[in-house]
Design a protein around this nucleic acid. Structure first.
Length: 599
DNA sequence: TTTTTCACG
DNA sequence: ACGTACGTGAAAAAG
């Protein structure tokens, strides 16, 4: 326990000496964007850590300004590695307290590179797995539910044991993972694809995006009216009121009271009421299921978006700050949470209205830039599919080409329906297709779907070879590699359960495709960031990443210059230290004062 | 805490 | 005979 500011000096000295220090911050909130510092822990040797209390309500804290002034030079010293667990969080908190941390290492990301798909990467889990030690959990310290207290109300000694342990464990994990990354030859992946993203994402999150509170409120009212109207119609048919949102009650009404169809159950034995099932029933001419579908769509938009998004507006910045998760997926993709800004509606008209509420600041413009058909291009490259590569080089419409191959007609004779089916086949291929899945998707018989696939694999034999090879490799090693060398693990690939095994096989086929695409986006973000830093004055801000798309905000007068730079940097990510890519990448750009008209 | 549903790429 | 498209996060119900 640091009880006097002068005690910090020896810790700083040790950190400067060794060039490494594990750090952890304790704060008033798990949301980095509104968190205030409560304490900082440091570890410079295994088994040795300290806690600097700053913002506890009880006695014994040091003055925040003095602690920050002392630690700032160390945290900003490029020659000393700052090691953290999910250090993007600490970076954001410290940045808001006037410290721009440099030379960051992250044990969460190291674990992710080593073990994606094997386990989660939170510290409690990592400590248990790699050190056989059960850590003091956050919940043990702050309690849960109604009894939950703020960290600033935690008694100082209790906080010390918890926080100092975290720094100590982080340092221990760092030592283990450093060794393992070298042994497994995965250090490159960590250095090239993970570390640079920490700061880039931190600044995207800090920047946030503006939303139009008023128009969302108007939308909510409009949705509410629609919901009320649909409810009236629904209850008129059911002849009683019930909770439409309850699958249990809804199933009871559909199958036992109205007897619209023979009882259909889910895998787990409850009534089947998913959109797929309801669409089938609606197709058979029933009015009721369609009303339910409509009700669900509007309720979803209201509950999840128009009602919720305004609650995420930060009172200080008046903008919405998502959190990008770097270690959530098996494939290398990012995820977004609190709120998730990677699943904002676009498909329905009502949905698009939600998007329109994401706006540029006055005088600014939003730019969207997305990779055209990136996963199909990856597949062409990954499986070395001659016909596909040629098509992309000639800038052909890939779904029309597929249609002409599968249905054996001239590309000029491909009609809407053929193209739609071919598109479904292409998607299916990326997901590790089954004839059953395809048949369901495009509403043809199993037999027909099988013939389509046979024709497809006959025309593109390299794809079948790729699929078989990938599964074989995965069965042997337990993982697959993407084109840059990132691993995704599939622990159930040899499971004795047929369903589990099949599921894992499809995931294993998909992972290198989805994963390589996400790597290209990571490289694009890193390139762009570097380019923007090289400009004398940079006013282009990256706000969001939605897997194959980036959203930017920029002053109006800069739009022309910046679109050029964006396109140039994104489409030239065709090689890295780890792979060179022989299929061209094309980027589509759109501009507007809101996100709704960017497509 | 788990299950179901549904929004996105 | 069985039951499947791949990857996510959030809301609501129900245990």
């Amino acid at each position: 326990m640091i009880t006097h500011e002068n005690q910090i000096d020896s810790w700083i000295e040790e950190a400067e000496q060794s060039g490494e220090v594990a750090i952890d911050t304790e704060t008033t909130s798990l949301d980095a964007h509104q968190a205030n510092l409560v304490g900082i822990s440091l570890s410079t040797k295994i088994g040795k850590a300290c806690y600097i209390p700053i913002g506890h309500k009880s006695k014994g804290c040091l003055k925040k300004e003095i602690v920050i002034k002392k630690l700032k030079p160390l945290f900003e010293d490029k020659s000393v590695k700052k090691i953290g667990q999910n250090i993007k969080f600490d970076f954001i908190v410290l940045y808001k307290h006037g410290i721009a941390m440099s030379s960051m290492e992250d044990t969460m990301l190291m674990s992710y590179v080593l073990d994606a798909g094997k386990n989660r990467h939170n510290m409690d889990m990592l400590s248990q797995i790699h050190l056989g030690h059960k850590t003091i959990s956050f919940k043990e310290i702050v309690g849960t539910g109604k009894k939950e207290i703020n960290f600033s109300d935690v008694e100082i000694n209790k906080a010390m044991h918890y926080a100092a342990e975290d720094a100590d464990i982080t340092y221990r994990l760092y030592k283990i993972f450093s060794k393992n990354l070298k042994l497994e030859k995965l250090l490159n992946i960590y250095e090239i694809f993970e570390k640079p993203l920490i700061k880039i994402l931190a600044f995207m999150e800090i920047e946030g995006i503006k939303i139009d509170n008023k128009s969302l409120k108007v939308l909510s009212e409009k949705f509410e009216k629609k919901i009320k109207k649909l409810e009236k119609e629904i209850f008129k048919i059911s002849k009683k009121e019930f909770n439409i949102a309850s699958p249990k009650q809804l199933g009871e009404v559909i199958y036992n009271e109205l007897k619209i169809a023979g009882i259909k159950k889910t895998r787990k034995g409850s009534f089947a009421t998913s959109a797929n099932v309801l669409e089938d029933l609606a197709f058979k001419g029933h009015k009721f299921p369609q009303l339910i579908l409509d009700w669900r769509q509007v309720s979803k938009l209201k509950n999840t978006y128009s009602d919720s998004l305004p609650e995420h507006i930060n009172p200080n910045t008046k903008r919405v700050h998502t959190s990008f998760l770097l270690a959530a997926t098996t494939t290398g993709r990012l995820a977004s949470s609190d709120p998730n800004l990677q699943n904002i509606p676009i498909k329905s008209e009502d949905g698009k209205d939600i998007r329109k509420a994401f706006i540029a600041e006055k005088g600014n413009i939003l730019i969207s830039a997305d990779y055209n058909q990136i996963e199909m291009r990856i597949l062409a490259d990954l499986a070395d599919v001659k016909e596909l590569k040629k098509a992309f080089k000639n800038d052909e419409d890939i779904h029309s080409l597929t249609a002409s191959q599968v249905f054996n007609v001239d590309i000029k004779k491909v009609d809407q329906d053929m193209r739609r089916k071919a598109k479904a086949i292409n998607f299916g291929i990326i997901y590790g297709i089954s004839q059953y899945g395809l048949a369901k998707q495009i509403n043809v018989s199993n037999h027909e779907a099988e013939e389509f696939l046979n024709a497809y694999f006959f025309k593109f034999p390299e794809i079948k070879i790729y699929m078989d090879k990938t599964i074989k490799f995965c069965r042997k090693t337990g993982y697959v590699n993407n084109i840059f060398g990132r691993r995704s693990h599939f622990t159930g690939i040899n499971d004795k359960n047929f369903n589990i095994r099949n599921f894992q096989e499809r995931a294993a086929i998909n992972a290198p495709i989805q994963g390589s695409a996400s790597e290209i986006m990571r490289l694009a973000m890193i390139r762009l960031d570097k380019k923007l830093k090289s400009l004398i004055k940079n006013e282009l801000k990256i706000l969001l990443q939605i897997h194959d798309e980036l959203i930017f905000e920029v002053p109006e007068k800069e739009v022309k210059n910046m679109t050029k730079i964006i396109k140039e940097e994104m489409s030239s990510v065709t090689s890295s230290d780890l792979h060179s890519f022989s299929t061209p990448l094309t980027v589509d750009l759109n501009i507007g004062n809101n996100w709704g008209i960017l497509h």
